[in-house]
């Protein structure tokens, strides 16, 4: 059975949507950022699929995916720092407790 580009794109779109849904509905900062990581990885799947299936300068898609992984690793580091900062000052890492400033 051959896997086609369309199937991979649908998979990536599904993962992206699950990530977005999770990021918008979950409460814990850590889980929200995990969901955003899903969105980034859906993009990675897209990039690699396009790079594999198009005959054009394919290396760029792969390079792009590597850069996305590197930058999201840096962002994970920042997430941990923010979670610790919140926990220290407020005793919780739930995003709906961040409600000091409104409107």
């Amino acid at each position: 059975m051959n896997i086609t580009l369309n199937q991979i794109l649908i998979l990536a779109a599904g993962i992206f949507s699950i990530g977005l849904l999770g990021a918008l509905t979950r409460k814990s900062v850590i889980i929200v950022v995990m969901c955003i990581e899903l969105m980034f990885n859906a993009v990675n799947i897209n990039m690699l699929a396009f790079a594999y299936f198009s005959g054009l300068p394919a290396i760029r898609g792969q390079v792009f995916a590597i850069f996305i992984m590197v930058v999201s690793a840096a962002e994970m580091g920042l997430t941990m720092a923010i979670a610790i900062l919140m926990y220290r000052n407020k005793g919780t890492v739930e995003v709906n407790k961040a409600n000091l400033m409104k409107w």
Binding site: F16, G19, L20, A23, I36, M39, F40, A42, V43, N46, M47, A49, F50, S54, R60, G61, F64, I68
Partner: peptide, 15 residues
């Protein structure tokens, strides 16, 4: 979230 959306868009432009 904004940059994930931007990347998703970039992947289509590239693809």
């Amino acid at each position: 979230i904004a940059s994930a959306m931007m990347l998703y868009g970039f992947s289509f432009i590239y693809g």
